[in-house]
Design a binder for these strands. Structure first.
Length: 211
DNA sequence: CTCCCGATAT
DNA sequence: ATATCAGGAG
């Protein structure tokens, strides 16, 4: 199947219909909590992150109190999320930066977010989009996989896919579409065993194994 | 490119 | 047993 612009529009239309109202599964109550939750979510399920952050924020609700608890305690607190040593190190360094340079607040500027330790392009885009309501498309493992399978946007790197998606999707839908793709990746177009037989996008998917 | 890493699904 | 989970740093 050749995926024309027309077909991409149809893919986006269907995604918007089935995943209308999709929002993050991560639980957070302010930009700081979202930032920490997203850092923790690398190679970890959101469900597990939510259990961890609920416990963590009850003890340390802001940057200064995380600094105060110390690196060893932080490591133990987030252990269940995996990659815990590097995550603890990055969270600690990020909290110091927030306190020292931004009065304990999370900066809104994308490039400033990117400079925070442990914050890469994907995390910066999520915070920018979700916490500060700016149009952005964070390309995580799901968005990357689904975009390539649909050929909605193709590329070897998340950056390439991100740029392809920005061309294929109107700007006002960027943030929503980002969530549509994630939900589709979780519910239907799974990494290991995609459920093509029950996929509403089967007709417009070049990777569909059925028919 | 490799390494970090526990929990979970298959 | 193994692949995968809202990645990022060196």
């Amino acid at each position: 199947m050749r995926v024309t612009k027309k077909i991409k529009e149809k893919q986006i239309e269907i995604l918007g219909q089935i995943y209308a109202g999709a929002k993050p599964e991560l639980v957070y109550s302010n930009p700081f909590e979202l930032l920490i939750a997203v850092i923790l979510s690398a190679q970890c399920t959101d469900k597990r992150v939510n259990v961890t952050t609920a416990r963590l924020f009850a003890k340390a609700p802001d940057a200064q109190s995380i600094i105060d608890m110390g690196i060893d305690a932080l490591e133990q607190e987030i252990r269940d999320c995996g990659l815990f040593r590097s995550k603890a190190k990055n969270i600690m360094a990020t909290c110091r930066t927030l306190v020292e340079e931004f009065d304990g607040e999370v900066p809104e500027d994308f490039d400033t977010l990117l400079k925070l330790p442990g914050v890469g392009r994907k995390t910066a885009n999520v915070v920018s989009s979700v916490a500060f309501n700016r149009p952005a498309i964070a390309v995580d493992t799901h968005v990357f996989r689904i975009s390539n399978r649909l050929k909605l946007a193709t590329g070897e790197t998340p950056m390439e896919v991100e740029q392809g998606l920005m061309k294929a999707i109107p700007k006002e839908k960027w943030s929503d579409a980002h969530h549509w793709l994630i939900w589709h990746g979780r519910k239907i177009c799974k990494a290991r065993k995609p459920l093509c037989a029950e996929c509403p996008l089967a007709e417009v998917c070049p990777s569909n194994e059925m028919k």
